[in-house]
Simulated assay, not measured.
Amino acid sequence: MENQSYPLGKTSLVPVGSHCILELYECPKDLLNNLVFIRDSLQEAARLAGATLLKEITHQFNPYGVTALALLAESHISIHTWPEIGYIAVDIFTCGQHSEPEKACKFLIEIFNARNHVLLKFPRGRLTPQLQELGESFLLEAPSYC
């Protein structure tokens, strides 16, 4: 494979990107059922992450709840809301070194007025991530490889 961007046999050590799992709790219920607000928030999150938005899709559930998906050149962002319990599940996966999904997560925590949250971040394409507590959030990190 002449065009490989990493050494042959070392594929498990190559970081391909970052994956953030964000859980937002105790959010105002009216925001979680507002499709336009959620769509606009999704677009801004992609911009703040430094990602390239290719396409988005949103769906309003009856009687309540919204799912919004952003297809990014770097991968994806998804937002799923449960207004009846004030909960939002967010998934942000960005490939490459230029994207900053943590900025998108911080923005979503603020814009949805989450009173509590859990953030898990881990590298994709590496082995053996380790969980580290960071205040109210958790960060998954893999050991550094030389």
Rank of each mutant, 00 (worst) to 15 (best):
L13P: 00
G17S: 08
R47W: 05
G135W: 14
T52D: 11
Y87W: 01
E84V: 03
A142C: 15
K121Q: 14
I88A: 13
G125V: 04
Y25C: 05
L13T: 02
V14D: 03
F107M: 08
L119H: 09
L140A: 14
L69H: 10
S18T: 12
S41N: 12
E74F: 01
P123E: 15
L119V: 12
D91I: 01
Q97S: 12
L131D: 11
L8S: 06
L69G: 03
A45S: 14
N116P: 00
A142M: 06
A46C: 13
N113H: 15
C105Y: 13
G9T: 02
I111W: 10
R124I: 09
F107H: 15
F122C: 10
L119R: 15
P101N: 07
E110L: 12
H59D: 06
A70C: 08
T94V: 12
S12I: 06
P83I: 02
A45Q: 09
N116C: 05
S12C: 06
L69D: 09
E133T: 15
M1R: 01
R115L: 10
L120Y: 15
E133Y: 13
Y145C: 13
L24S: 09
A89C: 02
V14I: 10
L131H: 13
N116G: 03
I77K: 04
S5M: 03
G135D: 13
T52Q: 09
P143G: 14
F61V: 01
R47T: 13
R126Q: 15
T58K: 03
L35D: 11
